[in-house]
Design a binder for these strands. Structure first.
Length: 216
DNA sequence: ACCCAGGTGGCCC
DNA sequence: GGGCCACATGGG
């Protein structure tokens, strides 16, 4: 019953077409989206992003100089709006002060240095840092999100909820290639949204014969 | 009236 | 180092 990682990847690739994935046009926009989407549906993130676009714009200097209360109003639909707004403003200010407002000042560094610097920012944990490295920096990092952990364990590929363990497992078995790792992550999110895998309580979906995903 | 969403940080032992 | 908890809006 249990499949391995290669089998899972090939089934996902056969089922879903995913191009370059994260819906954004700039590195800073990826960073903003990565913060806003924490524990939040992307639909709500889009609402907040749109309010920011209509206001100061998704621009480092603009965000850095937007009054906090104003930013909170735009972030509100994405939830946790007080902390998210404060963190976004802090990060924008940091980029202005330390890197002339250019995210490349971080992303252009050696991967591990860039990761450490991202992790030092408020509101940036492992998953957010790796999302930014992968989708804004084009670095071959696997993002071990809640969805990926669920899918890996329910398909019998890897039973773990430990971030580092999941990431190391995937990165050690697959080529360290940005397109492969971003494609896998993106397809897992699409799968999760389509199936009961998106809920923590669903049991047998990927393991049952009736599950669409299991039927090739 | 629940439960859930592409987590993080702070506090406790 | 692990186990809780607050953070908050919008949808099913």
């Amino acid at each position: 019953m249990a499949m391995d990682l290669y089998e899972l990847l090939s089934r996902l690739e056969a089922r879903y077409e995913v191009g370059s994935w994260w819906p954004s046009s700039s590195a800073f926009e990826v960073m903003v989206g990565a913060i806003l989407t924490q524990q939040t549906n992307w639909r709500n993130v889009e609402r907040a992003l749109q309010l920011i676009r209509e206001g100061p714009g998704l621009d480092v200097h603009a965000i850095a100089s937007t009054p906090l209360e104003e930013l909170e109003g735009m972030v509100r639909p994405a939830g946790f709006y007080r902390q998210k707004a404060a963190r976004l403003k802090w990060i924008a200010g940091y980029l202005v002060e330390m890197h002339q407002g250019d995210p490349e000042g971080i992303l252009g560094k050696d991967v591990e240095d860039a990761r450490k610097e991202l992790l030092s920012l408020p509101g940036v944990g492992k998953e957010t840092a790796d999302s930014i490295l992968l989708f804004a920096g084009g670095r071959p990092k696997f993002v071990a999100a809640a969805y990926t952990s669920r899918i890996l364990s329910r398909t019998g590929v890897l039973d773990s909820t430990d971030y580092d363990e999941i990431q190391e497992f995937v990165e050690s078995w697959l080529p360290r290639n940005t397109a492969v790792l971003s494609g896998l992550y993106a397809r897992m999110v699409v799968l999760a949204k389509e199936h009961c895998l998106s809920t923590p309580r669903c049991g047998g979906c990927p393991l049952s014969d009736g599950c669409a995903f299991n039927r090739r």
